[in-house]
Structure formats: C-alpha cells, structure tokens
Amino acid sequence: MSRLLPPAFGVLCIVALLCLLQLAIQAGIVDVYIVPLPTDMLASLPRLVEEEHVIRRFGVTFGETLSAGLLALVVGVALGMALQHWPRMRRAFEPWFALLAAAPLVMAYPLFLVLFGRSSLTIIVIAFASALAPVVLKTIEGFATIRPVLIDVGHSLRMTRAQEFRLILLPAALPEIFVGLRLALIFALINVVGVEFLINLGGLGQLISELSERYDLPGTWASIGLVVIVSILFFLLLDGGERWLRKRH
C-alpha cells in the first residue's frame, strides 16, 4: 500500500493542476482560445477515436518509437561494449557520439526522405539515429565505472569470461544502460512526433498538425496529451524491464 502512495500523490497533483487550469480558464485568467478547458480536451477524445482514428495513430507512433528504441538498444549496447573493450576506438569515437547526441538530426529529414522513402522507415531511422548516442555513451559509462573489487571477486572465484560478464559486469552496468535507454526513448519519441508533424505522415504528430491547422484546440491538446501517454507507457515498460532484469541477476 505504501508503495502506491507516491505515484498516487503524483497523479493527484496532476489532477489538481488540471482543475486549477479549468478554474483559471473559466475565470478568464487564461484565454480559452489559447488553452482549451481540460474538460473539453477530455470530451474531444470520443470524437478523435471515431473521426480521426486516434487509436490507430497512437499505435503507429508507439510502434515507431518502440522500433527505434529497440534498434538503439541492440546497436547502442553492442557499440558501447565494443568501444569500452577497445580503449583506442573509444578515444577515437566517444567524442563523436557525444556530438551526435547534441545534433538536431531532425533537421536533416529531407536527406532521410531521399534515402529511405516516404514511409515509417524514414521516421524510425531518424528516431534511431537520435536515440543511439545516449545508449552508446551510457553503456560505455556503465561498464567503465564498475568497481574493480567486483571484477577481482570474479577472478578469485575462477569465473569464465562469460560468467564474469553475465553475473558481474552486466548487472553492474545495467542501471547506467537503463538511464541511456530512458534518454534514448525520449529522443526517439520527440523525433518520431516531430518528423510525423513535418512530413505529414503517420501517427499523432500528423494528427496534431492537422488539428491545429483546423483550429481544433481541444483535439490538438488532447492529442498532445496522448503523446505524453505514449511517453508514460515507455517509462512504465522500462521500469518493469529493469526490475525484471535486476531480479534475474
């Protein structure tokens, strides 16, 4: 019960903030033609489901982000481990990954369009490219900061290299890798929605663009809320995944 209290308190605070916003709009403190009433946003959801196929769009955005995240996980962890294993390569490439993390890759979408076509693949590749750097950097950091004493314990127990990796190195590096993954999913989601918005293709980003053009403010804000829900879902998935992996190790 006590475990549920903090998240419940968090949800209550959000609800309270929305109630305050509702009151502020009704009192005319916030202009209803700039921010719609939260109750209007909620009321627009059935219409979005029926007329704008929002469930399918939600699935598209979720799927694209998940694909980019999984790709970043597989490629990023492998690259991070390889760079950590070969220090010269690490010195050569780590700064480039740091630069990649800061690069606004979304601006290069015309190039990706030419390379991968007008499809979800373009969106996934841009999101993957943006999500890769944090996974690589955090994987390097995770393995680089393992306490030597843990490795010494492995040696004293005459562990094989595979055992050492599975029982000592990976569990010790996992928290940092998950930090990288969280960042990666944030980058991926931002890029997925941004590119959908820019090239008018796919899921929630395209919907937000169309609804805002139509001045459907409740619909626009409700769709933005759905993007937040996608983000929350990924965090819940990651939390669950991390807990499961830690229990196994």
Binding site: P110, L113, R118, I199, N200
Partner: peptide
C-alpha cells in the same frame, strides 16, 4: 497526398517518392 512544406515536397518529388 499530403507531403508537407515546400522543401520536403521538392525532395520527395525530385527523388521520385511522389
């Protein structure tokens, strides 16, 4: 087909995607 703004459309048209 919705192709977005001018530069994005130009890219798509010149690369044969539309």
């Amino acid at each position: 087909i919705a192709t977005g703004g001018l530069p994005a459309t130009f890219t798509q048209a010149m690369s044969g995607q539309i």
